[in-house]
Design a protein around this nucleic acid. Structure first.
Lengths: 365, 365
DNA sequence: CTGTTAGCGCATTCAG
DNA sequence: CTGAATGCGCTAACAG
């Protein structure tokens, strides 16, 4: 059979609709796309034929013809990660009104999967790309960037590139974390690190350090605690950091963790070891995932506007795909929210070189 | 310019490759798809031309021609939910080797978004659909099912349909939960409900009830605690359930929650109210998200093989898309894992009608 | 305003 | 084994 009749799996073509309405396919196409350029009674006729036949335009034909797929590729390190999942949600929210769909490029923390997604770009399967992974995927020496597609990064700037990005000011975040802990009276600070060499991690660590120094903390008393090889912003990374912390002879009295998950893993190790938070050690995270509201103690954290970041990134990309030149080469910074909560407090009395002035008179000059 | 030259945004076509190799486009196509049917030296020639020009077949053209998009739509209630995110990851893992990509259909707990995804199906933008939402999306009276696409459900059977599904045995899970709590000595049990009328929730509730009855619990002592209107398997639903629990005059001594998130929200309310878990009330969840390892106390739960469920669903769908008839109309049940941990224990002495025989001699007949 | 025509890029006939 | 020709379904020129 050449043309399917109605039935399961049947898909009407524009020709079917045209025949049914007694007009040409061009008229059908116009009646659907630009009804004001078609005589009203014909539009009516076409619409009836469309609904009778259950016609939905074939997407690949349309894409092939128009050279626009109305699809966006989102490359994410791990869909299972709370943070990325929420940004993804924001992206979808921002893209949907413009009629764009989302193809998910899940690297699953295994960079060898990049090739698949590079191909998506070159196969013109998508009109644009949003990166949550902090780098431009590539494979076999071919970078996704050379596909010539509009591209936006969220959560992390892309080094050595002019790819627009949207995120928070990670430097300000790191400094505020340091300030918060220092003002509570802590004089020896730890940073439970995320992935080494990652731009965001570097920004947070260096700015945390700067912030601590600015508060008069001794450089020797700002320690970086690695989470273990190959570990990302995960619970397990926090567990590893916690274990290293326990092994230290001179422990920090407060620890800023590179992510909320790290903080949560870290706190678990403390609890299991009988180290109280915040009495023995203050712990804070960053990201502001919902889960932080449900930890015990409730976690001090820096909330990124996850959903808004996604939406802003989507809108930036939409602008670029529409060829609005003002969209490209931009850098969007959204405000974060500092949530000072129960997991951070004054240092234990014996460890405090100086107690916050709000809490007690200074002991050191 | 008619044909782009190499440069940013350039995309070589099969014609470019053919010209460069000095063969016809048909030969290029064959050299790529079925190299064994082409003279080796020509294959060599083509391959060189391909890599020189950076050719990647245009996907919409190929889709239009072959009537296969090599894309699958995954409809998920909420990408931000841990559970779905992990299943999604498993799906991607299962689909990737077969060369299939994933389009994400995020309902975001707002069913009016269904229409978009119904269109994807009818527009033949995908070759198959995986449902994590427990129902078949539809809009304007048109069901996605009538698009005639292979379809599989994961995590929940679809009522009144012959759509194959993969999941755990929810009835067995509910019964085991009841048994676990009853054997610890609890004689008054609560169920913190998920979305009312949801198949899975119904299965868990009814089987929990059955299991409790089988253990000799009085029917009047099995109470369903609603999480509040419009609430899903979320933390907040657990919070609402916790508040209702506290308001009860005769509280259950153990509560089975419809999801881990519900359990975690519930536990927070208990903690804030000074009700100890498990000393005052035992709490358990179901799903087995990673987060349950990091709660305090560590949450007793029933772990669903999230990733395996996703992979199995993907493989089932692959079979259907390949027209393997044995694939359809199947129902796959994967084993779950009962994790008895610290959040469940014996009931408080004054409340116990009977203490588990492992813990103390029976007080009742 | 409407129909005819062409072609997006590819895979697959059908000849040779 | 290879090339020429065809058409997947659609939209956009171009005529009328």
């Amino acid at each position: 059979m050449r043309r399917r009749t109605a039935g399961p799996g049947a898909t009407a073509t524009i020709a079917d609709v045209a025949a049914r309405a007694g007009v040409s396919t061009a008229t059908v196409s116009r009646a659907l796309a630009t009804p004001d350029r078609v005589r009203p009674e014909l539009v009516e006729l076409v619409m009836r034929a469309v609904s009778e036949s259950g016609y939905t335009p074939n997407n690949s034909a349309r894409t092939l013809r128009t050279q626009r797929s109305r699809m966006v590729l989102v490359v994410v390190p791990s869909v299972a990660n709370q943070m990325y999942a929420h940004v993804l949600r924001g992206i979808d929210t921002g893209l949907a009104p413009a009629g764009y769909g989302v193809i998910i490029g899940n690297l699953d923390n295994a960079p060898n999967k990049e090739g698949r997604f590079v191909d998506f770009a070159f196969a013109r399967q998508v009109d644009g790309v949003i990166l949550l992974c902090g780098f431009v995927p590539g494979s076999h020496g071919r970078s996704m960037a050379s596909a010539g597609l509009p591209m936006v990064s969220i959560l992390s700037p892309i080094v050595d590139s002019d790819i627009p990005d949207v995120g928070i000011d990670d430097h300000a975040a790191g400094r505020e974390a340091a300030r918060h802990l220092a003002r509570l009276g802590h004089r020896r600070l730890g940073y439970a690190a995320g992935p080494r060499e990652h731009v965001v991690d570097t920004a947070r660590w260096t700015s945390f350090r700067e912030g601590a120094l600015a508060e008069g903390v001794d450089p020797a008393d700002i320690v970086r605690i690695e989470g273990g090889e190959g570990m990302r912003y995960t619970y397990r990374s926090g567990v590893a950091a916690g274990e290293r912390f326990l092994a230290m002879t001179r422990r920090p009295t407060a620890v800023f963790c590179g992510s909320d998950e790290i903080a949560i893993g870290f706190m678990k190790v403390m609890r299991d070891a009988g180290v109280s938070v915040p009495e023995d050690v203050s712990v804070m995270g960053i990201d502001g995932i919902e889960q932080t509201d449900y930890t015990h103690p409730v976690l001090t954290t820096i909330r990124q506007p996850r959903q808004d970041l996604g939406r802003a990134g989507a809108e930036l990309l939409l602008g670029m795909m529409d060829g609005r030149s003002d969209a490209a080469h931009r850098r969007v910074r959204l405000p974060f929210e500092f949530l000072a909560r129960a997991s951070t407090g004054a240092p234990p009395a014996e460890a405090a070189g100086r107690i916050s002035q709000d809490l007690a008179p200074a002991r050191m000059g």
